[in-house]
Design a protein around this nucleic acid. Structure first.
Lengths: 224, 224
DNA sequence: ACAATAGTGTCTCTTAGACAATATCGA
DNA sequence: TCGATATTGTCTAAGAGACACTATTGT
């Protein structure tokens, strides 16, 4: 019998210079050894509780990062995608602030702007495209982008994160109304973002209750 | 080495008596032989191009149905869900008009209202719950429910399908405005639904171009 | 004619976006 | 004080829902 290859891949996304970037690693085993690809690997039936657990392990082992947001994306499968044979890859995606990647202890980790991703091993290009589409869709009606922010941030910063992801300017008043409705942020008492030659902005943080839970809106933020 | 069990399961949904129903089959092999469960089975690496192909085959072989709408739902995995060992099930969901199931040649197929699904083998209850949530979410901003309609239907019929899925009455004027914006239906010239003791309704069909493609709206139809 | 539902016009209320006024910083 | 951006108030326009009026059938 021809066993099916079971793997997980993680699309680790962050925001750098106002653009979504994906984290890639040089593969250290064949096939495609030495080539940049998504962090991923075999599911270990004796070690992983499920594929979500395997994805967390992969992220931890290969990048040293623990992401509070890690969600299943989709499963990619077939005879053609892996030269070793018929394979299944359960793909996950994670969002982390840029600082988390910058301070990660794995320096061989590369960040590539998602719009500049070209040919990659397996179907990793398609997996990344799917993840980016998912993040863009979900950002338009949820608090997903806060996972790309540091633990304290200003509303103008958060707005620019949304704008970078959605690729379109957002009305300031509407944006603040939406965020206010989501009711997931709280001002950090007395904390302002100083140093700029203008009125300082209030710093906010995500309410503890929402740290690991998305908040959804029933109406989209920006309808393109 | 401990090979991982790779299966697909299909959540086949339809609308009967204004309620979403799921199609279940008696299993003819262990584990859980004789018990009602989702149509599903092993991925055949030598036969299936990918898991989507496997899901189509499963639907065809086990129910005799070919569904124009078959989408990947999510992947369920782990050590505990299958007594045979660590397993991965890539779940798909399909929507078909009730008539298609009624005329399917497999009489041992059972329809169960999704709200009355109780304990099922494996994690099939959870898979069904995920599918129902997906369908409800997606119906609120897309043309998904037309896949539950026969090839010709009236707007009041379509509205009642939406209402059954969303579980809430919808404003008639708003509904028609939305459907009109989606621009996926065309009236069948001269075809009216007669026989009722009131003004007959115009029959519509899905434009060919959209027969296999969802149409999305940027605003939700009914905000709960 | 009457009951019943289809189909459509229109009013109101809610929500999104435009605009602008005020606030508060560094230079 | 000036320039710059934060924050907030308010007006306007677009969209959703309520209501009601007309249309057309079977009984």
């Amino acid at each position: 019998m021809n066993a099916i290859i079971c793997t997980v891949d993680v699309v680790l996304l962050t925001l750098q210079d106002e653009a979504l970037h994906v984290a890639l690693l040089q593969r250290d085993h064949p096939p495609f050894a030495g080539v940049l690809a998504l962090p991923g690997g075999y599911v270990h039936a004796d070690e992983d509780v499920d594929t979500g657990d395997a994805a967390m392990r992969m992220l931890r082992e290969k990048t040293g990062i623990e992401s509070p947001y890690l969600e299943q994306l989709a499963t990619f499968s077939g005879r053609a995608r892996d030269p070793r044979g018929w394979s299944i890859s359960v793909a996950y995606y994670a969002l982390v602030p840029w600082q988390v990647i910058a301070t990660a202890r794995h320096p061989e980790l590369s960040l590539l702007a998602v719009d500049q991703v070209r040919a990659l091993p397996f179907d990793h290009q398609q997996i990344i495209a799917t993840a980016v589409r998912r993040v863009r869709d979900k950002s338009s009606y949820s608090s997903l982008p806060v996972y790309l922010c540091a633990d304290r941030f200003t509303l103008p910063q958060l707005q620019s994160v949304y704008e970078a992801i959605l690729g379109t300017p957002i009305n300031k008043v509407s944006f603040r109304r939406k965020i206010d409705e989501l009711d997931i942020l709280e001002p950090v008492a007395g904390a302002l973002e100083t140093g700029k030659a203008h009125r300082p902005a209030q710093l906010y943080r995500v309410k503890k209750r929402f740290y690991r839970q998305l908040s959804l809106s029933d109406r989209a933020l920006s309808s393109r």
